[in-house]
């Protein structure tokens, strides 16, 4: 690649690219854009055109049908709960990994990435086997299981509580969806918070202690505010991933329409019914939400760069 092919050389004033002596700008940018266009841009435009060329009343009808709304509610509701659980436990795991030294820490650190590496279908059948009424964990909560027996004996519990716990099933209900989404989202939280915590200047904690803060005050008023952007980013990443998750959820969800049917599954069902317009409208809604989530993540990071210098 000859350096003279550089497009910026020939222009004066405003230039598309800053001049550089390193060759290959045209080649790499051209290749990147071509590849992205074929793989991402054209297909995504096709999706939006398909959704947009559907008559407006049909779009409204698909988007506001009870089944679609319920599927979106299940997807977003379970993702929100799972992301909240991950926010708490992910923070604890990140804290333990960074701040404490104990046997097995490196193993724990490696295991965090397992949900990234384990195929979603494998996670799906494993989780559903574990939490099914006859599974290792599911049997604990089965009607005749030890936890239910114990709860039934607790007469001091307020009226109705026993029934709630006894009737609680995990697999093949929305609770199962939440479990799968916790599994999927945890590494996002841990891996976003961990590096920020590692680079946290411990002098700040010493300063806080010198000024008379106790440990709790130091954590809530000095450390947590500094971690907030990372926590929010991790939350958003885990949430975004959970909303679109398909493989690990469909095995454990039971997939009852209007009860435990997630939005991605509804897209698949519409496609199998040859209803491409219906599938594209729901997919369009999910894509727009994905774009908004990406935008929010970028805004959080820009905000934290302004506030703390760098992330």
């Amino acid at each position: 690649m000859a350096p003279s092919a550089h497009p910026a050389r020939r222009r004066a004033g405003w230039s598309f690219a800053k001049p550089s002596v390193i060759p290959g700008f045209g080649l790499t940018l051209g290749y990147t854009l071509t590849y992205l266009s074929i793989i991402v841009l054209i297909p995504v435009i096709a999706l939006f055109l398909k959704a947009a060329t559907t008559p407006l009343d049909k779009i409204v009808q698909i988007a506001t049908s009870a089944r679609t709304l319920k599927a979106l509610e299940v997807s977003f509701g379970s993702s929100l709960i799972a992301a909240c659980v991950n926010m708490v436990f992910g923070l604890i795991v990140a804290w333990v990994l960074v701040r404490y030294r104990f046997i097995g820490r490196r193993l724990l650190d490696a295991v965090v990435d397992l949900p990234f590496a384990l195929p979603t279908a494998v996670a799906g059948i494993a989780l559903s086997t574990l939490y099914a009424p006859k599974g290792w964990i599911g049997s604990l909560f089965a009607p005749a299981g030890p936890i239910n027996k114990w709860i039934a004996e607790q007469t001091w519990l307020p009226f109705g509580w026993n029934e709630i716990v006894i009737n609680w099933k995990i697999a093949y209900t929305p609770s199962g969806i939440v479990i799968a989404l916790i599994f999927i989202g945890l590494p996002f939280m841990v891996r976003t918070v961990q590096p920020v915590l590692e680079e946290f200047e411990q002098e700040l904690e010493e300063a806080a202690a010198t000024l008379g803060a106790n440990r709790w005050q130091t954590i809530t008023r000095v450390i947590l505010p500094r971690l907030t952007p990372a926590i929010l980013t991790g939350f958003a990443l885990a949430f975004a991933r959970a909303v679109g998750e398909y493989g690990s959820v469909i095995f454990i969800a039971g997939n009852l329409p209007n009860v435990s049917e997630i939005a991605p599954l509804l897209i698949v069902i519409k496609l199998e019914e040859f209803d491409q317009a219906g599938a594209s409208v729901i997919a369009g809604i999910m894509l727009i939400i994905a774009f908004v989530m990406l935008l929010i993540i970028n805004l959080i990071q820009a905000w934290s760069r302004r506030r703390f210098g760098d992330v």
Binding site: P43, V44, A46, L47, K50, T120, L237, A240, R241, V243, G244, E245, Y246, G247, A263, P264, L265, I267, V268, L271, Q276, A279, S280, A283, M286, L287, A290, M293, L294
Partner: peptide, 14 residues
């Protein structure tokens, strides 16, 4: 990273 895998497949079907 933030698009549902199902949507990634759907775009090619379309």
């Amino acid at each position: 990273f933030s698009v549902s895998p199902v949507v990634s497949g759907l775009v090619y079907v379309l």
